[in-house]
């Protein structure tokens, strides 16, 4: 356990020294701050659209963060060869992978909390604030975080056997397929292959409650609980897949 935490703590520090982390964070902050202005451009429902922009900006930032920071954090160790000194110690490959994942999830959680507070603050500057709305915003951010956990797990699983570009592209495909499964069903094959793939792919649209949040509708706590379980199961399965592949593969370093 100590080794896992040690790798996670170093991964947190590593991320805080990453340029890409600050670029994505800046992107998210700018998105939230300027959403009010974007809302002004619309004819009606300006407040709701502003909040929708804020949540969408945060979601996209977290998606990019999960994928590209994950690829960087894990792949860089492999390509630079620094993994060799770590894995020469009495440490399993699973601990290494999980430590990196845990470190990234910690930083992502802090980012989500910061963005959530910023969104509530920005919203409260221009609009009236109700308890329901605050909770619905918190719920929306929490579910965005769960989605980012699943995507990061997918990224780590892919990164164990493919290069940075392939991993990034495939993880982004997972995101789009996870959200637009029905659209693809209608426009692409509609056949049995897609039927099987649809069952295997995590349904990321379940985590999308942005529209509900803009209307201050709360998702029932039981549903949030089951969504948490669903995200945990999906992430665990992808991480297990990654661990099995990573344990069996050669590391040329």
């Amino acid at each position: 356990m100590n080794k896992l935490l040690s790798i996670a703590a170093t991964a947190v520090r590593e991320l805080l020294y990453e340029r890409v982390f600050y670029i994505l964070l800046a992107f998210a902050v700018v998105g939230v701050v300027f959403s009010n202005a974007l809302g002004e451009l619309t004819y009606a429902d300006q407040a709701k659209l502003s909040l929708d922009f804020m949540l969408a900006g945060t979601q996209m930032s977290l998606v990019l963060f999960s994928i590209f920071v994950g690829v960087g954090l894990f792949q860089r160790e492999l390509t630079s060869g620094s993994v060799a000194m770590i894995l020469s110690k009495p440490l399993s490959r699973a601990t290494f992978l999980l430590g990196k994942f845990l470190g990234q999830m910690t930083v992502q959680a802090l980012v989500v909390v910061a963005l959530c507070l910023l969104t509530i603050f920005m919203w409260s500057l221009g609009q009236g604030m109700s308890a329901n709305l605050v909770w619905s915003i918190i719920q929306a951010f929490y579910l965005c975080y769960l989605e980012s956990v699943v995507l990061a797990a997918v990224t780590y699983a892919l990164a164990t056997f493919s290069g940075s570009m392939t991993t990034g592209a495939c993880a982004l495909s997972f995101f789009f397929l996870g959200h637009y499964r029905k659209t693809f069903d209608l426009t692409l094959t509609g056949g049995s292959v897609w039927g099987i793939a649809e069952k295997l792919l995590p349904n990321l649209e379940l985590f999308n409650v942005k529209t509900l949040a803009t209307y201050a509708f709360l998702v029932p706590p039981v549903e949030v609980f089951w969504l948490t379980v669903y995200a945990a199961v999906c992430a665990t399965l992808f991480l297990l897949m990654g661990i099995v592949i990573f344990r069996e593969r050669d590391i040329p370093t």
Binding site: K3, I7, L91
Partner: peptide, 29 residues
């Protein structure tokens, strides 16, 4: 693994760590 000390051909460390921190990290592992 406990029996082996390994020096790779091109060792690389996390650049933000100090020398003492590097050894503390690897010692922990």
């Amino acid at each position: 693994r406990k029996m082996i000390g390994y020096l790779p051909e091109n060792p690389r460390f996390q650049k933000f760590l100090k020398a003492g921190e590097v050894l503390r990290y690897y010692g922990g592992l």
